[in-house]
């Protein structure tokens, strides 16, 4: 009787330690963002006492540049999410429900896409976008993310899992192919859409490498690239509070996404682990 209870307590303790390890840097960022830059330049120990201020946030709002970057990040992340969801759903439906020659081969090719790392294609991609004169556009930041083999794979599996009897009942109910897709099958894939959408949004939001390469114009920076650009070096002492305020700001959308879709994220992670 005592052993499971004990191991349970050990597990809780480990989770608490893990949570603290992850939370402390975040809280540290939050605390620093509430101190004046001048004070931090002298000594970051002052975080634990003295005056707190919202001046950094006021500067942030006054500056405006960061809003431009947030807007870029939102456009890119939302655009990529919408594109991936639409394309993966259509492709998944096709692979799961349509009979056409070469279907298996095509699916295998898509799966190969899972194995190709971004690093392997980045130079060619850069040259391609240079040639097409697409750099420093939102399109350049969105397009590469639209080839989403994982999304296609996930949606294909999801559509396959829906019994064909549903389609057949609908055919007898005079439903067109589009009605069946739009009104019956697509609503049934909402959990998968949510999972795929969240992961796509988060990875687009957090992406650093490709925006760093493609967006060279300050106006086209995404938030990650923008914030990094205001950082001089790793031992920076100047404007530390302002930098931290930017970081807090950058994290907010993620927090909102998480709070809104918490249920689906937990399901997705649990599902991935359970399988």
């Amino acid at each position: 009787m005592t052993r499971p209870a004990l191991s349970g307590r050990v597990a809780v303790a480990l989770v608490v330690v893990g949570a603290v390890l992850m939370l402390v840097p975040l809280l540290w960022v939050l605390a620093l963002s509430l101190k004046s830059n001048a004070e931090l330049m002298a000594d970051t120990h002052s975080v634990f006492n003295g005056r707190y201020t919202l001046q950094n946030y006021a500067d942030l709002v006054g500056d405006g540049q960061v809003f431009r970057w947030i807007a870029n990040s939102l456009i890119v992340s939302l655009g990529m999410t919408a594109g991936v969801l639409i394309l993966s759903s259509l492709a998944g439906y096709g692979f799961a429900r349509l009979e056409f020659p070469g279907r298996r081969l095509l699916f295998v090719i898509v799966l190969f896409g899972l194995a190709v790392p971004e690093q392997a294609v980045i130079i060619a991609r850069h040259q391609l976008f240079s040639w097409a004169e697409l750099h420093n556009t939102h399109g350049a930041l969105i397009l590469p993310g639209l080839s989403a083999p994982f999304g296609v794979f996930l949606m294909t599996q999801y559509f396959r899992a829906i019994p064909k009897e549903i389609d057949e009942a609908a055919l007898l109910d005079n439903a067109s192919r589009f009605t069946i897709f739009w009104k019956l099958l697509l609503p049934l894939t909402i959990p998968a859409q949510a999972t795929l959408g969240i992961f796509t949004f988060l990875s687009a939001w957090n992406d650093y490498w490709w925006p760093l390469i493609s967006a060279t114009n300050k106006e086209m920076f995404t938030l990650t690239v923008g914030i990094a650009s205001t950082q001089m070096n790793f031992a920076q002492t100047e404007g530390l509070g302002f930098l931290m305020a930017q970081a807090v700001f950058a994290g907010l959308p993620i927090l909102i996404v998480y709070l809104l879709f918490q249920k689906y994220i937990v399901q997705a992670v649990a599902g991935a682990a359970g399988r």
């Binding site: 019994p163 009897e165 549903i166 057949e168 009942a169 609908a170 007898l172 049934l188």
Partner: peptide, 12 residues
């Protein structure tokens, strides 16, 4: 009209 073995009702 057909009644299927597994009913095939639209779940949502």
């Amino acid at each position: 009209a057909m009644v299927f073995q597994h009913y095939a009702l639209y779940p949502h």
